Computed example of a mutant assay.
Amino acid sequence: MTTANAILLIVCPDVAGIVASLSSFVLQHDGNLVDVDFHTDREQKLFLGRLEWSLASFALNRQDLQSALATLCDPYNGRWQLHFSDTPQRIALFVSKQDHCLLDLLHRTTFKDIPNAEIVVVISNHHGLQAKVQAHGQISGIPFHVLTITKENKAQIEADQLALLKEYNVDLLVLAKYMQILSPTFLSTFPNTINIHHSFLPAFVGAKPYHQAHARGVKIIGATAHFATVELDAGPIIEQEVVRVSHRDSVDDLVRKGKDVERTVLGRAVRLHLLRRVLTYGNKTVVFA
């Protein structure tokens, strides 16, 4: 039986002695550090860190650990998060018509590539992918909801979507090729949202980036997974990848190659986030991979 680990993420003003203080805290309570990573942003004078330690012999229970870390970390005048590796995480997928990212994430969660994670609901603005999710659901029983969205009903549909996220107790929303722009109201209510954009941002934002890339004659295309924010395709970047293309490639070739990159990049980003290896600050991220 695998022992659970505690994971501490912290970002705060950089001062001397933080690493020693955090490491000593774990040691003093009979903890065994299994992964430690730190970064200093010298321009912003910020310290960013991740500590993971085994709870097998740790002297504090989880509730007391939370209180003890508050005493330790609050004086650093930053923000910190405590997570546990055995805490189940519930994912919702928003989809439209394309299935490649949806099917990849269904596969990853079913075969535990993403540990302690479960897709609990799929919400779409089209019926087309319902049969594929229901076929997968014979194993996992994933419900599929269709909420057709128009300019006239957008506010009501988003309210219905948020109600479903609450009903299914969702921790993370993944936009798996959901070809709609979420409103500021939605994102302020549910900010823990990851999007996949089919270009190597900041190039070719918005619609039809492969057409833009083909018209520009680029030699590489890519995909970007990022946290969704009010500004379109401008949220903190989690993961990116590129693939080479040439003058011989048509738009369809770019789309085909791009889909391969998109599913890989989105899968990596979701996994990194759920493993608590992504720390945001401002509009940037540190990824402790």
Rank of each mutant, 00 (worst) to 15 (best):
F84M: 10
I181K: 04
F227R: 06
R276T: 09
I123M: 08
A213C: 09
D37S: 15
A225Y: 04
L254V: 03
C73N: 08
T150M: 05
A155H: 08
V146T: 14
A4P: 01
R50H: 07
H214Q: 10
A56T: 13
A228S: 14
I238H: 04
L272P: 00
I221S: 07
Y168M: 02
F186L: 10
V218R: 01
L274F: 10
V278F: 07
I123K: 00
T280L: 12
S188M: 12
L93S: 03
L175K: 01
E167T: 13
R108T: 06
D233Q: 06
H226I: 01
V242T: 15
L279A: 00
T3W: 14
H136F: 15
I123Y: 01
R42K: 13
E239A: 15
S246F: 03
G282L: 07
A289R: 12
L164H: 04
G31T: 06
S96R: 11
K97T: 11
F38N: 11
V287L: 10
N77C: 09
H136M: 11
A234R: 11
L274V: 06
Q240D: 04
L274Q: 02
L105V: 08
Q89C: 08
P209D: 09
N61W: 01
V121F: 05
L69W: 12
H211W: 00
I181G: 13
G78M: 12
G206H: 07
L175P: 00
I238Q: 04
R248T: 12
R244S: 15
E158H: 05
K154I: 05
G258L: 02
G267K: 02
A207L: 15
P75E: 14
H273C: 05
K97N: 09
T280S: 12
H211D: 03
K257M: 13
T189C: 11
V170Y: 01
L275V: 05
F204W: 01
W53F: 11
A155T: 13
G222E: 06
D14A: 11
V170T: 06
I119K: 02
F84S: 09
A213G: 09
W80S: 13
T229W: 05
I114Y: 01
Y168A: 04
I114C: 02
E239C: 06
R248N: 14
Y281D: 03
E43H: 09
L182D: 02
L65T: 09
I91G: 00
F190H: 03
P191T: 07
E239R: 02
E118V: 09
H100M: 12
E152H: 13
Y76H: 12
I119L: 07
V243I: 15
V34G: 13
G235M: 08
L103W: 08
V287N: 04
G141A: 07
L279P: 00
V243Y: 03
A163E: 04
E231N: 14
N77F: 14
F144I: 04
Q180L: 05
V120A: 13
T71S: 15
V278L: 10
R263H: 07
L46W: 03
A203L: 10
I7H: 11
Y178L: 10
L274M: 07
I237F: 05
L102H: 03
T148S: 15
I10W: 07
L254T: 02
L164M: 10
S183R: 04
G17E: 05
F288Q: 09
L9Y: 02
L55S: 13
